[in-house]
């Protein structure tokens, strides 16, 4: 590509002002900013001993959990909405006929590959029964890839660990009856 190619758009540099031409005022401005940060408070914490304070754990997007209902059963109804919504395709559900009378299906197996997950929270948004939620646990680790594929029991145990600190969201209120909208 030649310098006078028509496709090149030359951009004019912004003009230097008086302080820019004198250079020293900006020089001092720069060093004052740096020194203020040098002496100012530090944002990082001594990680394993201290933990970051998460402002609102209810909206933080960390490790998933599978919620239990009042009787301690898994809340999920195996509707596959979360697996469909997942942009990373990390949720794998095998549904089966429910042994309980109040629902038709339940997940026989429910696995989330935490290494593929991008922690976007779409599954939480999609779930119609508030069965899957993201917790505020952010430092998950494992020794193998297989270990990082969380199964149903593990996800339920995450719920048991976090249910007191982060109470389950209330079930969404039923939609108001749609009246007069249909033509």
């Amino acid at each position: 590509m030649k310098p006078d190619d028509a496709r090149i758009r030359w951009i004019e540099e912004p003009k230097l002002g008086a302080t820019g031409k004198m250079y020293l005022p900006l020089f001092f401005q720069g060093i004052v900013t740096t020194i203020r940060h040098l002496l100012g408070p530090k944002l990082t914490v001594y990680s394993p001993e201290q933990r970051h304070e998460i402002p609102d754990p209810l909206i933080y997007r960390g490790v998933h959990r599978l919620n239990r209902d009042e009787q301690g059963r898994v809340k999920c109804v195996a509707c596959f909405l979360c697996a469909t919504a997942c942009p990373a395709h990390c949720i794998d559900i095998i549904g089966a006929e429910s042994p309980w009378p109040d629902r038709e299906k339940y997940p026989e197996s429910f696995t989330i590959d935490e290494l593929r997950c991008i922690f976007c929270g779409m599954c939480e948004e999609a779930c119609p029964v508030n069965a899957i939620e993201l917790t505020s646990l952010y430092d998950l680790s494992g020794k193998s890839r297989e270990e990082m594929v969380f199964d149903k029991e593990k996800l339920l145990s995450v719920y048991d660990r976090t249910k007191d600190a982060e109470p389950m969201a209330k079930a969404a209120a039923p939609l108001p009856p749609q009246s007069g909208e249909t033509p």
């Binding site: 740096t34 940060h37 040098l38 002496l39 100012g40 408070p41 530090k42 944002l43 990082t44 001594y46």
Partner: peptide
């Protein structure tokens, strides 16, 4: 110094 200026703690 690099760490402190970036509001970090640096090697400690």
């Amino acid at each position: 110094i690099a760490a402190w200026i970036q509001d970090r703690r640096g090697p400690c």
